[in-house]
Structures are given as structure tokens and as C-alpha cells.
């Protein structure tokens, strides 16, 4: 396959960026999207040019490191992560636009790499449980009803890649934050911090400069792990419940 790539190039956080056009040849339809970019980078290095910087780690679709907005879609045309997107989703002669996640809370560091540490700070605000450390606890000590376990797992699938923020026209992190809150709030292990978790994480989310939800549903469509839009509804319910309880105290 021969492709034309239009890639966002930006030297550093303070530099002005622009789209640069590259031609790549000899792309196999079995290659992953990142392998295609590796091919481009090998050519750039041989030519003595600066390779395109992009985030990646496990390349198995489970770590949440890879990003990229491909032809306007976070993680490209398939419902998966960029590393698990294959070139068979494109045709010979295609022009592909590759851009970084766009949100003021995710500033560009270089080319296609953005700073997603805002997510880490949201997690630090309440995305944990208080548990004694040491040897592994007895698995049956705390019974969890099966529907609750399933619900928690559905939300625990979130890999924190930030596609929801990239896809949202408001740059909102509601889907990420709600996935983390719902995952822990439904479990008995998460019960002690149920109220403070939702209040603190939503407050941190606002402080990081993410936008608000207008329920366009773009986030849930882009999410490679299929976190449902209803997750945000449930977070809103948890937030209202916690606010009412805090008001009574």
C-alpha cells in the first residue's frame, strides 16, 4: 500500500505546530497503525530528519498509552485502540490525517504526544480504596453480588487513554471520571469513600480545566473499551447523592 500522511508536527510545547505531508510506500495491510508509523520514522531517521513522536507502550490494547486522532476519529475508524488498528482499515492511495488529542487539559508536548497527567491527578483525588496492605485478603471475605461485580468490571475496563476527552467537543473528562467513580462506588471495598470520592474527583476534574458534558455521546462512541454514556448519568446521581449527604452534616 502507498499512503499519503498528513501529520501534526510540533517541536515542543511552546512551538507553533502545523500539518506536514509524508508519503509512505510498502505498507502491508497486516501492519498495525503504529507499525506503519514506525516505517515512516525509519525512513525519516535514514534521511536524517526528526522522527514523528507518538505515545505507545504495550501495543496490545490494554495499557492506554497510545492515542492519535486519525481522520478526525480518536483511535481511528475502528472501535479499538490505535495500536490494535490495522492498515486493512485503509485503502491503497488513501490520505490519512493524524493529529494529537486536542484539549487544553492535555497540552501537546511534542508532535502527537500530549501530557495526560491531569488524569493521574483525578485518580489521586479519589480513585483508590482504603485497604490494609500485606498478604492478599481471603477472596470470599467480602461478598460481592454478581451484577455489581459485572458493573464494576465494565467500568474497570477503562484504560485511561483519553479518547473520550479527545472526541468530546467540550474537551470534557466526564466519561473517564465516571468510569473510575462507578467502578469503585458500586463495590463494598469502595463504600467508605463513596461520597468523598465522587465529590473530590469531580472537583479535581473541574480544576484541571476539562469542559462539561453536553451529552453529545461522542465520548462513548470513541471509547475503545465501550464505557457506556450512561456511566455519566450514574456519576451525576452519585454526585447529587453525595452533595445532599454533605449538606446534612
Amino acid at each position: 500500500m502507498k499512503l499519503t500522511l498528513r501529520v501534526w508536527r510540533q517541536k515542543n510545547a511552546d512551538a507553533e505546530g502545523a500539518m506536514s505531508t509524508y508519503e509512505v510506500d510498502g505498507i502491508s495491510s497486516d501492519m498495525s497503525f503504529l507499525e506503519m508509523l514506525d516505517t515512516l520514522n525509519e525512513e525519516l531517521i535514514l534521511k536524517g530528519e526528526d522522527p514523528v513522536a507518538f505515545d505507545h507502550d504495550c501495543r496490545e490494547g490494554i495499557c492506554g498509552a497510545c492515542s492519535l486522532v486519525i481522520n478526525g476519529d480518536a483511535h481511528g475508524p475502528e472501535r479499538t485502540t490505535t495500536c490494535q488498528l490495522h492498515m486493512r482499515s485503509f485503502k491503497d492511495g488513501d490520505t490519512i490525517d493524524i493529529e494529537p488529542w486536542r484539549a487544553s487539559a492535555f497540552p501537546v508536548i511534542k508532535d502527537l504526544v500530549v501530557d495526560r497527567s491531569a488524569f493521574d491527578r483525578i485518580i489521586q483525588a479519589g480513585g483508590y480504596i482504603t485497604a490494609p496492605t500485606g498478604t492478599a485478603p481471603e477472596a470470599h471475605a467480602t461478598p460481592v453480588p454478581k451484577p455489581d461485580a459485572d458493573y464494576a468490571f465494565e467500568h474497570a475496563e477503562c484504560i485511561g487513554c483519553g479518547a473520550c476527552v479527545a472526541a468530546c467537543p467540550n474537551g470534557a473528562a466526564m466519561l473517564f471520571t465516571s468510569a473510575k467513580i462507578n467502578h469503585l462506588n458500586v463495590l463494598p471495598q469502595g463504600a467508605p469513600e463513596r461520597e468523598s470520592r465522587v465529590l473530590d474527583m469531580v472537583a479535581q476534574m473541574d480544576d484541571e480545566g476539562f469542559g462539561g458534558c453536553t451529552l453529545t455521546g461522542e465520548c462513548a462512541t470513541a471509547c475503545p473499551k465501550g464505557i457506556p454514556l450512561m456511566s455519566i448519568t450514574n456519576m451525576n446521581r452519585e454526585w447529587l447523592r453525595a452533595t445532599r449527604k454533605a449538606g446534612k452534616r
Binding site: R6, W8, M19, V69, N71, G72, D73, D97, E99, R102, A103, S104, A105, C168, P169, N170, G171, A172, G209, F210, G211, G212, T214, L215, T216, G217, E218
Partner: peptide, 28 residues
């Protein structure tokens, strides 16, 4: 106030445009 926050949270647009959301949603 929410719109101001939303616009500030997404200052730069994507170069590659595509139709987004339903008409009712976009015209709020």
C-alpha cells in the same frame, strides 16, 4: 458559564473535520 468553560477546554479544532452529534444537540 458552562459554554465558556467548554470553549476554553477545547481551544484548538481538529484539522480533519467530520460531522458530529445530532442537529438538536449541536443547536442547543
Amino acid at each position: 458559564q458552562l459554554s465558556r468553560r467548554d470553549i476554553k477546554a477545547r481551544p484548538s479544532k481538529y484539522v480533519h473535520k467530520r460531522p458530529r452529534a445530532s442537529y438538536a444537540t449541536r443547536t442547543m
